[in-house]
């Protein structure tokens, strides 16, 4: 059967698939939040979703607009203070996966959400890191999801908000960081994983209908493709329906609030 879907939907669904039922996942707002909740509503009903506002084991019926929406607290197993969240649960090593978005990303999974340009005289002052610097170092591993653009996927990030693999190789371990760091990148065009040695992101599968040129044209570094390059499985009807229903419920809820 032929199913129509957008590149955005493919990105969210491919990201959702990476999460398992036993994962304890620290959720970034935006694209990661949608993916984590699709996972929870499909193949991973027992996944623990944590938002940095202190909500642990939350199961929102609609996607939150911010990391501190009341819906997250209402549906959580428990809500703790922010210092407790960062000290006991994150720094304490309880979180298996951190799911982050990025304004700027390089091939080694270093993320910039701080400034474009020079820190002291930025051309664009972005919001900053928030929880990300320690999410990146304290979670067991890091998944990243973002749409590909030449502005977003760059040769060198303007600022190291969150450390990925530095300049690659053993950079991470050399700094005394014991967690795995970025192990997966899901864009609107492809699924990427780091090379085990160099730690550079390599395209492992192209989303259906996407060509190598598409990926290269929207990426600021010379892209490497896996020898056994695959094609990402198309979304199932269940995945697609779940995502669309979630988005529809979210839009309806926010429209009521605004009205």
């Amino acid at each position: 059967m032929e199913i129509d879907f957008t590149t955005d939907e493919m990105m969210t669904i491919a990201a959702a698939r990476a999460l398992g039922n036993d994962d304890i996942c620290f959720v970034g707002i935006g694209a990661p939040s949608a993916a984590c909740n699709v996972a929870r509503l499909t193949h991973a009903p027992d996944i623990t979703l944590i938002y940095e506002s202190g909500t642990i084991g939350t199961a929102p019926d609609i996607l939150p607009l911010s990391i501190g929406d009341g819906e997250l607290c209402d549906t959580a197993v428990t809500t703790v203070s922010v210092p407790e969240m960062f000290r006991y649960w994150l720094q304490g090593g309880r979180v298996t996966v951190g799911f982050l978005g990025a304004a700027q990303l390089d091939r080694f999974g270093n993320i910039n959400t701080t400034v474009i340009g020079d820190y002291n005289a930025p051309s664009i002052r972005l919001p900053g890191g928030g929880g990300a610097p320690e999410i990146a170092s304290s979670c067991g591993e890091i998944f990243i999801t973002m749409k590909q653009t030449l502005r977003g996927m760059v040769e060198v990030v303007d600022f190291f908000t969150s450390f990925g693999h530095g300049s690659g190789g053993t950079d991470r371990a050399d700094l005394g960081i014991t967690t795995k760091g970025p192990t997966l990148l899901i864009t609107d065009l492809a699924v990427w994983r780091p090379d085990p040695k160099t730690k550079e992101f390599i395209v492992r599968s192209l989303h259906p209908g996407v060509t190598r040129d598409h990926v290269q044209d929207t990426c600021g570094w010379p892209v490497k493709f896996a020898d056994d390059l695959g094609v990402t499985d198309i979304p199932t009807e269940l995945e697609l329906t779940t995502l669309r229903d979630l988005k529809a419920r979210t839009e309806a809820a926010h429209a009521v609030e605004v009205a």
Binding site: L90, G131, P133, E134, S137, F160, F163, R172, G176
Partner: peptide, 27 residues
Amino acid sequence: SHAAMANAYEAGAAGLPCAVFRGYKGA
């Protein structure tokens, strides 16, 4: 970072001059 600020407030409440935590690695 959030971790630093949360720790800094907690240290303030605890009457300490500074907060110590595992953070800012590579940042």
